[in-house]
Design a protein around this nucleic acid. Structure first.
Lengths: 176, 176
DNA sequence: GTTTGCATGTAAACGGTTACATGATTGG
DNA sequence: CCAATCATGTAACCGTTTACATGCAAAC
């Protein structure tokens, strides 16, 4: 899903600045399924403005930098819906971790252990975040997304916990 | 994980042509966690050859195009191990599906249903593939990777099956 | 006094995909 | 007869990240 479409989507829930859109990525329930940097958000917003899919209102603030508040236009809404009606790109799960595990037999056991433990720790942090965001008062479909992510990470943690010993054994014993 | 490193990794398991490396992606147990196109594999292989991390042997074949069989060099092996010892890039789960579900309230119910059903179907196909690849005679860590993927997809399918009715209700009732 | 948060933006670099070019062989 | 498999490679394009530039205010 490109940054363009994601920005439009976020704006269907209310007006926001580029900065706020970024935060929505980092905090919200879609945190685990999409991401974008300022370097892609700001140009996307400019282009959407040119195409009249969003409108801008500039606000001068005291003690804070000026902000540009973007709102989705009716045309933008149609464009967004149209994007969701087209065949979606397939999900991609890129896992350098899983790749590395394929070569656990070439790695020192200590490294394998560190990799597994670090991964479990990371996943648990995300689980906690997701549980928190599903706990708050959010829309039902936001809750669904959060719980979807939760189910995924939970299964990963469970799997790794039960298999941890086995995979660590694959690692190279340290030379004496 | 960049194509360079992935090519090196595959070559630690034995010599191969660019074409075969691509197939390994498509068929193997890491299928769900990494991917690359010819347009990235061939240039990567050329560069690795320049850097002496792999070596090439050209084979002329009858009735088949010539092939370039790449083998990893000792230097390549070290470089690969070094890459796995450095901090790994984080896993990224990009899910246009989860994103779309966040906006199920804006979509016609029929579309939501089609999206969910299509997604379940896809995931089940992958489950079947993973089960098959875990069934064959493979290295223990390959089995681990396959089962890791299996656990993930299984949890996705389970979650979606139990929640399907709920999320479909979020969709817009068709106007009469 | 340093880090974090607010806020916008640009340019270069990067990594990758898509499409194209070529061509014989085998299987349905 | 057509599609798929084997096999390599290039060039244009694309979207995104990274780094840079700027600057004040509040929190630690």
């Amino acid at each position: 899903m490109d940054v363009r479409t994601i920005c439009l989507g976020i704006l269907t829930r209310g007006s926001a600045t580029g900065y706020e859109i970024k935060k929505t990525f980092e905090e919200g329930s879609l945190q685990h399924f999409a991401e974008a940097s300022f370097g892609s958000i700001y140009p996307a917003l400019s282009r959407l403005t040119e195409e009249a899919l969003v409108s801008v209102r500039e606000e001068s603030q005291e003690k804070r930098p000026d902000r540009k508040v973007y709102s989705i236009t009716p045309a933008g809404r149609s464009a967004f819906l149209a994007a969701l009606m087209k065949p979606l790109p397939e999900d991609r799960h890129r896992s350098p971790f899983a790749f590395a595990m394929l070569f656990s037999d070439l790695l020192p056991q200590a490294r394998v252990r560190a990799l597994v433990d670090g991964y479990i720790e990371q996943a648990e942090k995300k689980l906690a975040q997701l549980q928190q965001s599903a706990g708050g008062q959010i829309l039902p479909n936001e809750r669904f997304a959060a719980e979807f992510g939760h189910a995924m990470y939970q299964s990963i943690v469970d799997f790794l916990r039960t298999r941890r010993a086995e995979i660590e054994q694959q690692g190279l014993q340290a030379a004496e």
